[in-house]
Amino acid sequence: IVTFKITISFIALGISGKSQLLFALVFTTRYLDLFTSFISLYNTSMKLIYIACSYATVYLIYMKFKATYDGNHDTFRVEFLIVPVGGLSFLVNHDFSPLEILWTFSIYLESVAILPQLFMISKTGEAETITTHYLFFLGLYRALYLVNWIWRYYFEGFFDLIAVVAGVVQTVLYCDFFYLYVTKVLKGKKLSLPA
């Protein structure tokens, strides 16, 4: 959605380049298993689409439509996310191997990667409606996994504590936005915050 939005509007205004850079890093470190294991054609396709879209979005923001990118409001310090997340992925993981640590890093980083975008909206006090749709579906994507994990726990005995805890954290971070989306955007109003 975000790649599409920038492509058709020719502007990167209102989109956090820092969040998009973090997502590119998330998908790159998560999907290194493209080289080591095959799950399904669907799984492989989606991984490639996520990686391609995240890099395309970064290219659009920082290269093609750089003049329209609102960097002055994109001031979240990403090192405050990357450094602790990097440390934690070395300390708490399923297996102390390079691929597994990178996978863990990507799971932890994804859970907080939206913070620069939410911070940017809180600074500017508004967001375009299509940007709110993007954020809603990005949040919903992980929130639905919570339901899926309960299902898989009961019916397959599958349980991944790292993914579940990170997924809960990620979903909680979206809660305030979900509230605004339902009470404002779904009622036809633009998302604007009181000054």
């Binding site: 998560r30 298993d33 799984n43 399923h94 297996d95 996978w103 996994y145 991944d160």
Partner: peptide
């Protein structure tokens, strides 16, 4: 053990 489990989710 978990290390042998494939990460089959996106």
């Amino acid at each position: 053990s978990m290390e042998l489990a494939k990460h089959d989710e996106l």
